[in-house]
Amino acid sequence: MSLGFERALTPIQPDIVFSIGNFGIANSTLMIIFIALLFLALGIFVVRKFTLIPGSFQSIIEMIYESIVGLVEQITGNRYHAERIFPVIATILVYFAVANVIAIIPGLTDITYNGIAIFRTPTSDFNTALGVSLASVIALNYISLQEYGFLGYLGNFFNFKEIIKGFKQGLMEGFVGFIKFFVGLLDIIGELAKIVSLSFRLFGNVYAGQVLAIIIIGSFAYVLPAVWTIMSGFTGILQGMVFASLVAVYYTLSLKPIEELSKKNN
């Protein structure tokens, strides 16, 4: 049964605005490029001029920065891990927050080229969520590799040591070692599952939010659409925060405990 909203809904598949060779450039990609340029402009024209005595805008930026540092430190539980993963988590958080909120700018998503909207909320495109999730998990494994070393990192997935150690202690412990070995193999699937769960969760939430927005805008002419638009802005920031927090938790689980590091340093 058709409710009549299908036409107004953002299509699940992003529209290709133009192509470079075989690579199609989607409207979500253009929005990401636009956001990247915004960040670059912020860095070159604003942040570079920051002084020791902050102005009001600098204070806001620093406040956001400190809040993210605090959030990451709260999740990881210590300063060392927080500093290590801060750039990744902060990028995810800021990027998603801006990407979700930028669609609120009136008229931005209405700009068209050959009848196709040039900009689209990047997070409502599954490919963006997948790309960021993939990047996050790769970064997670890269840091893990740095922490444990190549053999130690592989040892997390192929835990032969537990089998040998177990059989040295006895037959029963040997079988437990086997189970631990298979659990290690399951962790490989776990890494892939992280990509899937992160991307599906984000895409589902943002896309569902957009569907709801269309329904509300279609059903109510006044007041409620405005309230919903403001609320969806906050929801966007919240989605970014949830995604970043989840990645931070994954990072924390894959990092060495701080006690182990201090033992190593001693």
Partner: peptide, 10 residues
Amino acid sequence: QIALVNFINF
């Protein structure tokens, strides 16, 4: 293709 481009953009 879009996923790869968006990954690089990120």
